[in-house]
Simulated assay, not measured.
Amino acid sequence: MSDVNDPFSPRAHKGRGAASNPEGRFETVRRQAEDDGWQSALLDDAASRPRTEVTEERARSVITRNDSPDIHFSQAMNPYRGCEHGCIYCFARPSHSYLNLSPGLDFETRLRAKGNLAEVLRSELAKPGYRVEPINIGSNTDPYQPIEKRWRLTRAALELLAACGHPCTIVTKNALVERDLDLLAPMAEANLVQVFVSVNSLDNHLAAKLEPRASAPHRRIRAIRALAGAGVPVGVLVAPIIPALNDRDMEAVLEQAADAGASCAGYTVVRLPYELKTLFREWLALHAPDRAAHVMSLVQQMNGGRDYDSDFRTRMRGQGVFADLLRRRFEVACRKHGFGRARDLRLDTTRFVPPRPSSPQGQLF
């Protein structure tokens, strides 16, 4: 529980999800802040409104490969490290520890942008042995998070993929995806793209605390409508479902998404790996203290008595009575609205023409 008299204790920050900035699991040094009584006012002002800092990095590769049996794509690409959306439940938060940064506030304020993304992607697609399979954009962090407005790295990647006829899927919770309809609509016509919009609640007040800088739920539903209206295959992901917090909205989300034109649906339950366990418990203590114990009790029921179970067979959907109830509710709602499965659409891999590799000498033909 936060101590209001301690300027260094976990506290809610306007527009941010995390309440603290704990060291990552690979850090060898632990820091303990102490208040000497002189700097409290300055600390309160600076700590309450942490600013977003973006550092450009030069990537050596941008396509990652995946062989996890519970993930339905084999290639992925993430233009950014960290995510300004600040979703407190984000399973990607612990990945910031590899940068010697905190999975807490650092994850949503100290971001990395892969400035040479399009250049490296072109090089990788042009390799003689490259095997064409759909690339998922946004598997770890959101490709349309707010900083995309300025950096336009996702846009640059889509331009290249469209030019060489390469299929891709996109996962986002930001209506900024509408900006790229001029690229997505022609790609959809050629069966080269599918977009998934994540909507896990219709409660604006809850969303403002859970995922403070993502588009509001009703705005995401409008984005689904815009995508579907432009002929882009679009699905809804009710993800993650947090028991006793947002699970009540599952059927309503699916109903509104179906009305907006979504053709398929998927869901996952909340996952709390590594440092995320502590950050999520802090969030519950600050924003839902009356139900924190109940939420965590149900989370543990779905994870074999622990905060998180990494077993591939159960980590996405959970296990036990409550997980079975969620599954049945989801299946009934999907049948009611005629949803297909998120992986039913088969994108076209036959149109791909490798891009010419970059050369300082240019091309004669």
Rank of each mutant, 00 (worst) to 15 (best):
M1P: 14
S2P: 13
R11Y: 13
A18M: 12
A19N: 09
N21S: 11
P22Y: 05
P22N: 02
G24C: 04
R25F: 06
E27G: 08
T28D: 11
R30H: 15
R30S: 15
Q32S: 14
Q39D: 13
Q39V: 06
S40R: 15
A41P: 00
A41W: 05
D45S: 06
A47Q: 14
S48V: 09
R49V: 08
P50A: 13
T55S: 15
E56I: 08
R58E: 13
A59R: 09
A59I: 05
A59W: 03
R60I: 04
S61A: 14
V62F: 05
V62M: 07
I63H: 10
R65W: 08
N66P: 00
R81M: 12
H85P: 05
Y89P: 02
C90S: 01
R93W: 03
H96F: 04
L99G: 05
N100W: 10
S102I: 06
S102A: 08
R110E: 12
R112N: 12
K114P: 10
N116V: 04
A118C: 06
A118Q: 02
L121Y: 01
R122L: 08
K127E: 15
K127T: 14
G129K: 10
R131V: 15
I135V: 15
I137H: 02
I137D: 01
I147F: 07
K149R: 15
W151I: 11
W151N: 14
L153C: 10
T154V: 13
L160T: 10
L160I: 10
P167T: 03
T169H: 03
T169W: 03
T169G: 07
E178I: 07
R179A: 12
A185P: 09
F196H: 12
V197L: 12
N200T: 13
N200E: 11
S201L: 04
N204G: 14
L210T: 07
A216Y: 03
P217S: 11
H218I: 03
H218F: 03
R219T: 08
I221M: 07
R222Q: 15
I224C: 08
G235Y: 05
I241V: 14
I242W: 00
M250H: 01
A252T: 02
V253A: 01
L254T: 00
A257D: 01
A260Y: 03
G261D: 02
A262T: 04
C264F: 11
Y267Q: 01
Y267I: 01
R271W: 01
L272C: 01
L272S: 03
E275I: 05
L276K: 07
L276N: 12
L279R: 00
E282M: 09
L284S: 05
A285I: 08
L286W: 06
R291I: 10
R291C: 03
A292E: 04
S297L: 08
L298V: 08
G304A: 06
G304L: 02
G305R: 06
G305S: 09
D307L: 08
S310W: 12
R313G: 14
R313I: 11
T314V: 15
R315Y: 06
M316T: 06
D324C: 09
R328Y: 06
E331V: 13
V332K: 14
G338R: 05
G340C: 04
G340Y: 00
A342Q: 10
A342H: 13
R343M: 10
D348L: 03
P354H: 03
R356F: 04
S358L: 15
S359G: 07
Q363K: 10
